[in-house]
Simulated assay, not measured.
Amino acid sequence: MVHSMTGFGRSVKEKGDFHVTVEMRSVNHRFSEVSIRMPRHLFYCEDKIKKVIQRKVSRGRVEVYITITGESIVQRSLHVDWPLVDQYIEALTTMKEKYELNDDIQVQHIIGQQNVFDIQEENSENDVLVELVLESVEEATAHLVEMRKREGEQLTIDLHDRLEEMKTVTSRIETQAPHVVTAYEERIRKRISEFLSGNIDENRILTEAAVFADKADISEEVTRLKSHIQQFAETLEKSEPIGRKLDFIVQEMNREANTIGAKGNDQMIAKAVVDLKSLIEKMKEQVQNIE
Rank of each mutant, 00 (worst) to 15 (best):
S197G: 10
I73W: 01
V64C: 12
L144D: 09
H109L: 03
V169I: 15
G7R: 05
R187Q: 12
A209E: 10
V12S: 13
E285L: 05
R255F: 04
R55W: 00
E23V: 03
D127I: 04
N203R: 11
A210V: 10
Q120P: 02
I73S: 09
V12W: 06
V211W: 07
I249N: 12
F43A: 15
T69C: 02
D86S: 04
I192P: 01
K56M: 06
N289D: 13
V287L: 10
E164S: 13
E194P: 04
A183C: 07
T168H: 12
L92T: 04
E281V: 02
E291F: 04
Q231F: 04
R150P: 03
Q87G: 02
E97S: 14
E135C: 04
H29E: 12
K238A: 12
H228N: 13
E174C: 04
T156I: 01
D17G: 10
M283C: 14
A233S: 15
R187M: 05
A209H: 03
N102A: 15
P83V: 04
S278Q: 12
E139R: 09
N199S: 13
V287Q: 11
L196Y: 05
S32E: 11
V250H: 08
I229P: 07
K56F: 00
L78D: 02
I205C: 03
I53S: 10
F8A: 12
Q230G: 08
D86T: 01
E220I: 00
R10W: 02
M5L: 10
S72M: 09
N126A: 06
I173L: 13
Q87Y: 00
Q75I: 03
E185L: 01
N254Q: 10
V128W: 01
E125R: 11
E281C: 04
R224I: 06
H109I: 00
L155I: 09
E138A: 15
S197R: 08
P39R: 00
M1N: 08
T168G: 11
R191G: 02
I68G: 04
I188H: 01
G9R: 06
K48G: 08
S58P: 01
R162L: 09
T21P: 08
I105Y: 00
R30L: 03
N102V: 07
K15A: 12
Q87N: 07
R55A: 14
K149M: 12
C45F: 00
F18S: 07
D118A: 07
K15F: 02
Q154S: 14
H143R: 13
E240H: 02
L78K: 04
E131R: 14
F248R: 11
F31W: 13
K238N: 12
E122Q: 08
V222A: 14
T170S: 15
E23I: 02
M253V: 04
D104L: 07
Q108C: 04
Q231H: 11
D247G: 14
K98S: 15
D201T: 02
E125S: 11
I173K: 07
A262Y: 01
F8Y: 15
E185V: 00
A142W: 00
V85Q: 00
L101M: 14
R59E: 12
K271H: 15
G264C: 10
